[in-house]
Design a binder for these strands. Structure first.
Lengths: 339, 339
DNA sequence: TTGAAAGCGCTACCAC
DNA sequence: GTGGTAGCGCTTTCAA
């Protein structure tokens, strides 16, 4: 029945005042050794568990961090989430994760709930075009760190990966392999990540003096979409030798489609992705991709957030850009030179 | 600055009492329409956000559910977690997820933190041999629902899958395919799931009058372990025609090993798993496995938990056993008859 | 080194 | 219909 045991019961049992019990629980202030012992015994005897709700109310801090992200069951996010969780846990905070399915209404309600719960800070992975206003709303109340997808016009700590460069280098590698007729399957273009990856791809073609105009298809990061766009690409008979996808899931979908159609990967069409989710190395052929340090992104963002929470909110926002890494595997032929 | 706006400020601004404001916020009791309007205007004007910490303290309920599970970044759990989250969210609750890496010490600290945070209930996926005492400790304070892995001696709601039967039917299918020399790679045997899967496998062999003693290897559900045990199996030269793994991750590891050694799957060795994680259908050859309804397990457990929270804790614990589904794919030859 | 008491913001009971 | 007020369990001055 330790559930309803309060600090008051402990005080009574130990024959001291509430204040003194509070002191030993929090290790704050001086307490005579013998008193401390008595209190600790009482705590054990009663099975006392401090009520953090009461503590939060009185201290004005919950030691809870909220994370708003598209979908924990989507391969890229669990690793990111684990990075966040490990970072906050090790500093004595607890994490609440909200799934939004990249839908504004769910983002809206997540922000509202987290704010009502008085979380000490929020980590935000924007999913919808209207996310910016929600990030702003949240950041008016508590420190906010934005991960992965940049949000314009709202000053807060940001951790991203250099999507432009990752895409650029991947493309250079593909050109070195001799590909000229390429198709690109993009993500939702309202996301900064999608835009930058596409921009990096285009820039590299341009810089390399490739005149063949790439065929750009509009996707949504989903496996099924990769599959169906790949079929569309074949149907159009464009003579494509390489399909560049804005993420791994679509790439794997595309690869699967080609295989189902009896088209060899990479012998007839090369395919590559972006993210380097676990699956990328496990599918056959293994997927050439651009690796994002998901765990580190989460951990880093959480650390920046906690620092801001504990050291004050006034410093100007910092922005960290991590470097992605080109991972060459079998889906692009295995040959070629890493430029 | 809505952060520090309290119900008191709203009351003052609207020219009414705190009680009345509380009534309109909670939609409880009678309030004159014009009064309600005044209050709602004041709330909007001040950007008031109700403080759930204070509400929790006063109501004795936080509307927070805790989930304790091994590792959110491991393929099986995100789906399960999403099931839990959707179920609790739709009922107005918020979810806190704690990762334990199947380590007792982390389970212990998770239980302590959740109890201190005064969550209204806990969903527990046991990971270590000592989990039972923690489940008990938690269940002394709040309702607990156990998922996936049974915990003995602690009466609480439980959602599992019929692991014995899933394994049994898988094995029957393999026997029908003609396999006689089989190896089994188990999970940690302190987990009920591992035990039952192995038991189902053995029982089927026995019931079918197969005399060839299967070779049982002790694994830990990890990809790398599947890989190295597979290598060991080959090294031993046992003439195995089929490797049955206690989960998909080990199966994919084993498959990968065989492929690296130039051993054809399924032409020379068949491989199968358990779980049906997303990857299972995406690897080549696609993996024959036993599908667990992870999302439903999570959602169902959460619903049972919420019902117990809201309808009282005295009813005797219920136990739901979901049926797994045999999914025949290419890694076992594609042929054969689903018995 | 210890105790008393005023909050923290809200709910809910009791009056009016 | 509406207001007053006693808690909820803890932290944190301020005194002693």
């Amino acid at each position: 029945m330790s559930g309803n045991v309060t600090i008051r019961d402990v005080a009574r049992k130990a024959g001291v005042s509430i204040s003194t019990v509070s002191r030993v629980i929090n290790g704050t202030g001086y307490v005579r050794e013998s008193t401390r012992k008595k209190i600790e015994d009482a705590i054990r005897a009663l099975g006392y568990s401090p009520n953090h709700v009461a503590r939060s109310l009185s201290k004005g801090s919950t030691k809870i961090i909220g994370a708003i992200l598209p979908d924990i069951s989507n391969p890229f996010f669990p690793t990111l989430a684990r990075g966040i969780d490990d970072a906050v846990s090790s500093r004595g905070y607890t994490l609440i994760i909200c799934n939004t399915d990249s839908d504004v209404r769910q983002e809206e309600s997540s922000v509202r709930v987290l704010l009502e719960k008085r979380v000490d800070g929020v980590v935000f992975v924007a999913g919808s075009p209207e996310s910016a206003s929600l990030v702003r709303r949240a950041s008016e109340q508590v420190p906010v760190a934005v991960i992965d997808r940049e949000v314009e016009g709202v000053p807060c700590d940001t951790v991203t990966v250099d999507n432009f460069r990752g895409s650029y280098e991947l493309t250079r590698y593909l050109l070195n392999c001799g590909h000229r007729k390429m198709a690109y399957i993009s993500g939702p273009l309202h996301l900064s990540t999608s835009k930058k990856r596409l921009a990096g791809f285009r820039a590299c073609l341009r810089d390399s003096g490739v005149n063949d105009e790439p065929h750009v298809f509009h996707g949504d990061f989903k496996y099924d979409t990769g599959y169906s766009i790949a079929r569309e690409i074949i149907r159009m008979g464009l003579g494509i030798t390489c399909v560049v996808c804005a993420n791994d899931l679509m790439a794997i979908g595309a690869m699967r489609c080609f295989q189902d159609l009896g088209i060899g990967v990479p012998s007839q069409v090369a395919v590559c992705g972006f993210d380097d989710i676990t699956m990328a190395s496990l599918v056959r052929p293994s997927l050439t991709t651009v690796a994002q340090p998901a765990y580190r992104m989460g951990a880093l963002a959480a650390e920046m957030l906690l620092e801001r929470i504990e050291k004050g909110r006034d410093q100007s926002p910092r922005s960290r850009v991590l470097e992605p890494v080109l991972v060459i595997r079998d889906s692009t032929g295995g040959g070629g030179v890493k430029a």
